[in-house]
């Protein structure tokens, strides 16, 4: 007799835990043939609230970790993902990827994570500056994470789009709340499991599934979210930008085709950084001149 397969429940990921949506709702994800492939949580505004709260709580200590350590954690994500690549390929195939496409998507995603893992302790070195001011001061500018970032993931991509938007955000020390692709959410949830079993502290990444038309508003209007990263094909962009005005969220719109190798780089990290410039006097002692 054929064994009864254990089906997976796709939950959301908040504060390092896998709750069901507080609303108790779900939606059916359909493939191209309109055949249901899974039931997925239909998150509500309260889930957004909980996720932002968790993200805020986790952000400070994530930022304060040594950049080197963040790099190790990101690399660990790649390792864990590599170990579960078969599952990701399978899920992508459910979402209408061919096997080859799915394999490429997973390969590229792993490589992209490794790429950003390497940036953690380098981007600030590359992009900071010591500024030669004319007065007797030491002056330098370096980057700090913005804080909590809302990510509205690429709709058309099951994994690589999400990874390409997520990694630069956390590589730079931010925490985030992700609204997964509404059409292809399976890998997002599985990625949450990968994150949870790697060393990413709970709350640094929070992943919600559901309808964008319901979730864009609570996320982009939330006063404790510092920035928004959104897919350029998101039809709510203008509304997101308007809702972001109240606390002047930094909104970044990406129309990039993340399947291309070149669509990665330091600028995706600094997009969610604040530049801080610090001054301190320099006592000129050389020469024991008569200046004293």
């Amino acid at each position: 007799m054929k064994r009864v397969e254990v089906l997976k429940t796709y939950k959301i990921y908040i504060g390092g835990k896998f709750p069901r949506t507080e609303s108790g709702r779900f939606y059916k994800v359909l493939n191209k043939a309109e055949k249901p492939i899974a039931n997925v949580c239909l998150s509500s505004r309260k889930d957004v609230r909980n996720a932002v709260q968790a993200a805020r709580k986790a952000q400070g200590s994530w930022q304060e970790r040594a950049a080197f350590n963040r790099g190790q954690v990101l690399y660990r994500i790649a390792e864990m993902l590599e170990g579960r690549r078969a599952q990701f390929v399978e899920e992508l195939m459910l979402e209408d990827y061919t096997k080859k496409e799915a394999q490429t998507e997973v390969d590229n995603s792993i490589d992209r994570i490794v790429y950003y893992a390497g940036w953690c302790d380098k981007f600030n070195q590359v992009a900071s500056s010591v500024n030669p001011v004319s007065s007797s001061h030491f002056n330098f500018s370096s980057y700090e994470p913005m804080g909590v970032i809302g990510i509205m993931a690429v709709k058309s991509s099951g994994l690589l789009g999400l990874v390409s938007m997520l990694m630069p955000v956390i590589a730079g020390g931010n925490s985030c709340v992700i609204i997964a692709s509404e059409d292809k959410p399976l890998c997002a949830v599985t990625l949450a499991e990968v994150l949870n079993s790697s060393d990413v502290p709970g709350g640094v990444v929070n992943i919600l599934t559901g309808h964008m038309d319901e979730l864009w508003s609570p996320l982009s209007s939330h006063m404790d979210v510092n920035g928004i990263s959104t897919d350029g094909r998101n039809k709510y962009i203008t509304k997101v930008q308007l809702a972001s005005v109240d606390n002047l969220k930094r909104v970044r719109v990406y129309s990039n085709d993340f399947s291309l190798m070149q669509e990665q780089g330091i600028q995706f990290i600094t997009d969610f950084q604040e530049l801080k410039t610090t001054w301190h006097p320099i006592e000129k002692i050389g020469g024991a001149s008569n200046s004293y």
């Binding site: 500024n131 004319s134 801080k276 410039t277 001054w279």
Partner: peptide, 18 residues
């Protein structure tokens, strides 16, 4: 804060981001 002055205040310079 975008600019932090330590043991000084209100200093500006073209080479210093603000």
């Amino acid at each position: 804060a975008g600019v932090v002055w330590a043991n000084t205040y209100n200093k500006f310079d073209p080479s210093s981001p603000f």
